[in-house]
Write a protein that binds this DNA or RNA. Sequence first.
DNA 1: AGATAAATGAAAACGTTTGTCAATTATTGG
DNA 2: CCAATAATTGACAAACGTTTTCATTTATCT
Lengths: 144, 144
Amino acid sequence: MPFDDIAAALRRAGHRVTPQRLAIIRTVLASEEHLTPGALYEKVRRMDPEIGEVTVYRTLNILSELGLVCMVHTGENAHSFVSRPPEHHDHLICSGCGKVINFTGCNIDALEKRLVSETGFTIEEHRLDLFGRCHECAAVTARG
Amino acid sequence: MPFDDIAAALRRAGHRVTPQRLAIIRTVLASEEHLTPGALYEKVRRMDPEIGEVTVYRTLNILSELGLVCMVHTGENAHSFVSRPPEHHDHLICSGCGKVINFTGCNIDALEKRLVSETGFTIEEHRLDLFGRCHECAAVTARG
DNA sequence: AGATAAATGAAAACGTTTGTCAATTATTGG
DNA sequence: CCAATAATTGACAAACGTTTTCATTTATCT
């Protein structure tokens, strides 16, 4: 999502567009990786040394609630946030070397439809992580 | 997974089988819901008032690493743990109230096959979490 | 039963997240 | 452009969740 769209959406939702918030948005957009609030704080600080960590938390919560950034539950003790990618993707993760491959076309629509009718849930999103071994790591493990 | 199997697996992995650990396992097995370490601690305490919260954390980490219990990432600030059903299952999680529903039949074999041939990965397992709103929470949020 | 290494529990350290509140500031309307 | 006002900020501290430390206890092996 482009910078200007995010700022506009913020204003449209009745929030003020402050320099701090713009700096946070820029930093999220500029990073390819998922960042925890703490890590993001360290990065934003270089642009605006006066910013407070609390402001980062508050802004991320707002952006996340408005769907302007993506909150990731990594299983670590802290959430991470990323800019929302143009299209949905999932992850294929090598347990050996940690390499991560993004892929599209998870194709779970039929499953979602089934669960909606079975449970009454409204399904908004999902996270699908596949764990395994890449070609190189599988070769290494085959020996012992 | 039955109580005795868990105890046996613990011992087989080189861990000791202590009364505290048995109490924790019993409590996890006796509960249908996902429990955070803190909540579990409160429950175990009623069986063994002398137990320490730290022991609950340590035991859950061990059981989780050995695949004897299931760790759930609900999006809250704390993890939850559940007894692991005998067969593979995935999770449907309500972003509103945190309720978790287990379901089977994720049926992603075709996807796995595709990724194996495309990437050369050996896929061992996966985790599929669906996020949405249960019937009650969807009603509450109905606004725009 | 005795030796030994693992496990326990209490306290404290640590990191993440939220609350409080006076001071600041983006926005609105004149 | 300026003043009014309500949202936002930042420092501090509190509230959690989780891990570390360490002396003491204890399950396990012989």
